[in-house]
Each structure stands twice: as C-alpha cells, then as structure tokens.
Design a protein around this nucleic acid. Structure first.
Length: 258
DNA sequence: ATGGCAATGTTTCATTGA
C-alpha cells in the first residue's frame, strides 16, 4: 500500500500533472494541500475517471485540502478541521481508509517571526497536537501527512546558516513539531538511510530547484504500529521538473500488509 | 539535465506563499 501527500499549489492549474502522476504512481491514498478550490469546483469527475474517489474541503484562493482514495478501498469517518479550533481556513481533513486513520494537514506558513500569522501557526499546531492525541488513542494505525511548513532539523535545510531567524526553521516551530512526535509519531523519512540534501520544496525563484536549494517541510508521520509496517519512504523529486510544476514534490511511504 | 517566481482575484497591481 502506498500513501502519499502533495502540496499542488492550485489543483486547478495542477490537475493535468496530478492525473499523470496518479496514472504513473498509482498510490492508494493521496492527501492534497493548497487545492485553492471551492467545493463546487472540485474536479470530482476527472479524478473518478482516473480511478480515485475524492473527499475534500476547500475555499477560494487559499488553503484547501483533500484525500483521494483509490476506488475499491473502504472509506469511513471523514472529518474536517481541528476539533475545538474554529477556523475559516480549510487545512485539515481526516478519513479512515482500509483500517488506517489518515489525517491530511496543511500547517500555516507563519510568514515571518514578527507576523500575526506566526502566533496563529503556533496556536494551530497546539490544537493539532490535541487532536492527534485523541486520534491516536482511538486509532493505533495512524498517519499524518502533508505540508508541515517546518523543517524538522538542519539536515532538512539546504543552508542552515542562511535560514537562522526565519520562519519554517525557528526553534518554537521545531518544538511544536516535536510535541506531535512526542505524542507517539515518527518522521517516516528518517526510518531509512536517505541521500543527503533531500528536500520537498524549492522556491520558484533564483534557480532554487536546479541548484537544489530546498527544504524538507512535507512529511509523513506514522504511529508506532504503522511505522512497524513501513518498508520505504521517499520524495518524488521528478514531479518538480518540467512545465508548470508545483513548488512542492510529493512524499510517499510504502506499507506492508499487517 | 532540471531553469532564471507563481497563482489568485481585488487584475494591468497587491497579496501570499516558503
């Protein structure tokens, strides 16, 4: 079983690339971030024709998340948002797929350390931690996938010295991510030996991709029970190439049958 | 080899992203 996450930076623009990637990769589950589509505009029919059932919650211009499930897999208990955290920004969607609790997240960017959006990010992550504690208690087989907008440590930053004092790497953000891990989750990427300088996001500007000046901010966190089933974790860098790419690459894990 | 911001709506610029 392959489960994955991809910040597509507008599903409207990226739909052709997404459909091509689904056909080539055939993941069982895909969590999408930054769909930037109101629900009535979600391309349900195109995805169905490609063999996927879509669950989604979106809005105009910003945010928007979805879970795509390969046809034939059982889905139940679809839920949107963070419990007890009233938020017009559509950033969380959850579903149980083939017995695995899938939680797709688009963590706030934070913009800058002195921005109003920075404390919002930290508060949001605290609410996510509370949600995950409850979800883990109910669902031992659990994965949290998406754009976390935090580079876990300096191995995940192309030039750590240049990023000091910036959003995505600040100690409070990393501490907030650590709280999620302490709840009983593992960064699946680090379960395996990985090539150095493997990233999931590259700025559109300044030749960042060809120079591999990126960050690893898209993560798949696995519960202990799921980590025990994980046989691989990778980033599909090829999806960042060519015409009109998203600035993020998809992240994937492979799970064996329990 | 990859490519030199992109997407959106408020559209001919401002805002946001990371």
């Amino acid at each position: 079983m392959i489960i994955s996450a991809w910040n597509v930076n507008s599903l409207n623009v990226r739909l052709p690339r997404l459909l091509g990637w689904l056909a080539a990769t055939r993941p069982d589950v895909v969590c999408l971030q930054e769909t930037k589509l109101e629900d009535h505009k979600f391309p349900v029919a195109d995805l169905e024709a490609s063999g996927y059932v879509a669950h989604y919650t979106g809005q105009k211009t910003y945010n928007g998340v979805a879970i795509l499930v390969r046809q034939g897999l059982e889905v139940h208990d679809v839920a949107m948002g963070l419990p007890g955290f009233d938020d017009p920004q559509q950033r969380v969607i959850a579903a149980t797929v083939a017995g695995i609790r899938i939680i797709g997240v688009y963590v706030p960017n934070g913009q800058a350390l002195d921005s109003d959006k920075y404390p919002y990010k930290l508060t949001w992550l605290k609410a996510l931690a509370a949600m995950l504690q409850a979800e883990l208690a109910a669902h031992p087989q659990l994965a949290v996938l998406g754009d976390f907008n935090v580079a876990p440590d300096d191995r995940d930053v192309h030039d750590p010295a240049a990023w000091v004092g910036q959003v995505l790497v600040s100690p409070p953000e990393r501490a907030a991510l650590q709280v999620l891990l302490d709840a009983g989750l593992t960064d699946s990427f680090r379960l395996f030996k990985q090539p150095p300088n493997t990233f999931s996001w590259w700025d559109y500007r300044m030749l960042a991709f060809p120079k591999n000046r990126g960050l690893r901010i898209d993560l798949i966190l696995l519960s202990q029970a799921l980590a025990a089933r994980c046989t691989g974790s990778r980033i599909d860098r090829s999806a960042r190439k060519g015409e009109k790419p998203s600035d993020h690459a998809p992240v994937l894990v492979e799970l064996r049958e329990p």
